[in-house]
Design a protein around this nucleic acid. Sequence first.
DNA 1: TAGCGTTACTTGCCACGGCAACCAAGTACC
DNA 2: GGTACTTGGTTGCCGTGGCAAGTAACGCTA
Lengths: 173, 173
Amino acid sequence: MTTRVPRMNEAESRAWLALVGTSQLLPAALDAQLQADSGITHFEFMALSALNTAPELTLRTSDLAVRTYATLPRLSKVVSRMEARGLVERVPCPGDARASNIRLTRDGRKELLLALPGHLSLVRAEVLGRLSEGQLEALAEALEPVLEALADDPRFPWARGASRRAESGAATA
Amino acid sequence: MTTRVPRMNEAESRAWLALVGTSQLLPAALDAQLQADSGITHFEFMALSALNTAPELTLRTSDLAVRTYATLPRLSKVVSRMEARGLVERVPCPGDARASNIRLTRDGRKELLLALPGHLSLVRAEVLGRLSEGQLEALAEALEPVLEALADDPRFPWARGASRRAESGAATA
DNA sequence: TAGCGTTACTTGCCACGGCAACCAAGTACC
DNA sequence: GGTACTTGGTTGCCGTGGCAAGTAACGCTA
């Protein structure tokens, strides 16, 4: 039952190629800049950022995983590495001994703030700075539903809930 | 000389988060579907597609690398794996004995055509199908300059020339 | 309070990609 | 024509991520 799937038309093809292309190049570019200038990966940057905006600079491991689009194993390993470098620390979660909270250390916060300008500058130079106000709006309008679709597709359980559903923050109880 | 970089405003932030999110989830989703249904990665799919639209089903190794946004080492290894599975073959390049051409085999073409409907169907379900004609247009208009900027940035030499410059095809001379 | 299923991670093993080093063929210079 | 430089591609080693299996704690039922 090979259901007939129509080919892409011109507009679809352009949009798709551009999207796939950027999905390929952008992460590599972000990694390269951050790695070179601050010695952290873009993924680590995202994790540190998420912690930085969390109450008490602390998040449950699985919460952080959702916020960074990461699988649990991946996050676990990255946290171990960052912990070894003193950027974050694992603190036992009061009220649930299986879980652990991840806390941004003072050093981690410093590193993050140090990395921020360079990162932001790259993002402006390559992306935001090239788009008009209207284009920014259109980009968000176009990609947000896509993001949500990906996050909610049962075929991709690792993304589950990436469309903000849990606003829990750190579990302190 | 920490040049002051202004923070993101609301529109910028939305656009950026959506873009980064999709760049994170989309590649993984494409891999998962193709891997599950056809036993190939999305990268392999792109490579096979590029070969399929090339004259003689053949491209210079470095040409293929550019078209797939890959570094040469990466492509070399992927080609070796695909060659082992009989999807492509390396043929010596007449006129330049250092170079080699990569050719899509009959089996490779068959696999590609077999994988196409499922892939296209996912792309429609998650992305294209969720956007209006106007949004497709806007998305392309927004991302094409970004793509070009990334490709032309001397900091990211691996992307060099990803903005179509060489239309050479296979070197037959 | 004993037992069973579930949740919240963590770890081991493997595949893949990056970089740097390498090799071989072409090109330039004299 | 020989020596240096460049180009095209491959290989080795290492870091990172995925999946599946493991472990520990929780919680429900009886």
